[in-house]
Each structure stands twice: as structure tokens, then as C-alpha cells.
């Protein structure tokens, strides 16, 4: 047990070093991309093309295969950023700061997708593009938080300083995530309660639920690929004056 733990620890420490991570990322990027494309496309094609239509909403409900995974991912990315922020604040790990920096635009993007697709879905089912309901409003606030984090980081010249400033914001903003998660239960609102719950069985028939699960999985795979992709650029641009970058990246 102790042995396993120390191996994990060593692996984590090794991954925390930018050159090591860059080498790992470059070699595994094609694999990550392949996996992401397969699962993502499988889920979307299954969901959009082959799952049965809904008895009440008809085919429009298929937006769920885009909307729900993006919303789940948007919240997960924020939690992920807050955790890296905490790590970067306490242990000053360099890679944690870079992680926040490359995850923030992805989080903002997925929040935007969730908002836009939700708005389209709302237009057809509720009859309005937008309502000021607790779920929607708190998701919009989350988008602003992502924007604040991106804005603050880009305004600070010194990148290590920027990392620490941004981790403060990331940690502060994490309180918004449980509010979004719980808003549907606390305030009875227009937005329907979560389809996904860990505690009870899904209130969705299996041949619609399974493609949704695959979609969520596919979106997570895609996120891992996109994060690795972004992190490579981040590492090279921050360490471009180091000798290992000159050797590996520029090949001299």
C-alpha cells in the first residue's frame, strides 16, 4: 500500500515538472485526440441520430445531448480550476498555475455553449429565449467569473504573479458552483431538475440515457485532450528561454 502511494506521489511530482509534462503530452496527444474523437462522435451520433424521440417534446429534446454535457463540464472545469488554484496557493506548484490558465478559456467556452444551446432549447419549449431563473442566472454569473479570471491573468505581466492572483479568484469563486448545482432544488423554478443524480435511478428511459452517458464521457475525453493541447502551448510560451525548450522544441 505504502509502495503504491509513494509511486503515485513520485509520478505526480514528475508530472509537475514542465519538461517532463511536455514530453508526456507530446507523445500522448494523438492517443488522447483519437479517444476523444471516437467517444465524442459515437455519443453525438447515437444521441442525435438513433435514440428515440421524446413523447412530449419530440425531437427538440435531442439538444440535451449537447446542452447537459457542456453544462456538467463547465461546472467541473471550475471545480478543477479551484483545486489547482488551491494547490498553487499552498504548494506553489508551477504547473498548477498553468493549468488554471489553460483551463479557463475552455471553461468559458463550455459555459457559453451551455447558455446558447439552453437558450435555443428554451425558445422551443418554454417559449422564451431567456428567463431570469436561478439556474440560468447563476450559470451566467459563472461565465462572468471565467471572464474575470481570464482578464486578470492577461493584465499581469509577470506570469508567476498572475498565477497566484488568479488562484485567489478561482478559490473565491468556487462557492458559486454549489449554488448553481443546488439552485434547481432550492428554488422551484422553470428549469427542470437534474436528469443526472448519483442517488436515484435516472428518470429517463435507458435507450435515451445511455447515449447521454456516452456523450458526457466523450465531452470529458475532449476536455482532457483540449487541456493537454492548451497546456503544451502554455508551457512552451512560458519557458521559451529555458535550455530544455531550445533543445526539444526548436531542436538545437
Amino acid at each position: 500500500m505504502n509502495r503504491v502511494w509513494s509511486r503515485i506521489k513520485n509520478w505526480l511530482i514528475a508530472m509537475g515538472s514542465p519538461p517532463h509534462f511536455y514530453r508526456w503530452a507530446t507523445s500522448s496527444l494523438p492517443w488522447l485526440a483519437g479517444l476523444a474523437v471516437i467517444v465524442f462522435c459515437a455519443g453525438l451520433i447515437w444521441g442525435l441520430g438513433f435514440s428515440p424521440t421524446d413523447y412530449k417534446q419530440g425531437d427538440v429534446y435531442r439538444i440535451i445531448y449537447i446542452h447537459v454535457p457542456s453544462a456538467i463540464l463547465a461546472e467541473s472545469i471550475y471545480i478543477f480550476m479551484a483545486i489547482s488554484g488551491f494547490i498553487s496557493m499552498v504548494w506553489r506548484a508551477k504547473i498548477a498555475g498553468m493549468l488554471i490558465n489553460s483551463a479557463a478559456p475552455l471553461g468559458a467556452g463550455f459555459t457559453l455553449i451551455a447558455l446558447l444551446t439552453g437558450s435555443i432549447w428554451g425558445k422551443t419549449t418554454w417559449g422564451t429565449w431567456w428567463v431570469w431563473d436561478a439556474r440560468l442566472t447563476s450559470t451566467l454569473i459563472m461565465f462572468f467569473l471565467y471572464a474575470a479570471i481570464i482578464g486578470l491573468h492577461s493584465s499581469i505581466e509577470n506570469k508567476t504573479k498572475g498565477d497566484r492572483a488568479v488562484s485567489i479568484l478561482a478559490v473565491l469563486g468556487v462557492v458559486i458552483v454549489p449554488i448553481i448545482k443546488k439552485s434547481v432544488d432550492w428554488w422551484q423554478t422553470l428549469h427542470q431538475p437534474s436528469t443526472f443524480t448519483l442517488t436515484s435511478s435516472p428518470s429517463m428511459s435507458p435507450d435515451m440515457y445511455l447515449p447521454l452517458l456516452v456523450c458526457v464521457l466523450g465531452f470529458y475525453c475532449l476536455f482532457i485532450f483540449m487541456l493537454t493541447n492548451g497546456l503544451r502551448a502554455e508551457i512552451i510560451s512560458r519557458e521559451r528561454d529555458k535550455s530544455w525548450v531550445k533543445k526539444q522544441f526548436f531542436k538545437y
Binding site: V60, I66, G109, M226, G230
Partner: peptide, 26 residues
């Protein structure tokens, strides 16, 4: 899709555009 196609396909388009931008920038 029973006339609801444009809604669903525009969602897919939004998804693909935003993801592509995020992959291309790095």
C-alpha cells in the same frame, strides 16, 4: 426532425465552432 431540425443543428454548429476555436488557438 419534424420542423425542429434547425434548432438542434444550430446547437451542434455552436458546439463545433466553439470547440474548434479552443483547439486551434493553442
Amino acid at each position: 426532425m419534424d420542423g425542429k431540425g434547425p434548432y438542434v443543428w444550430s446547437c451542434l454548429l455552436i458546439l463545433i465552432i466553439i470547440i474548434t476555436i479552443n483547439i486551434i488557438i493553442p
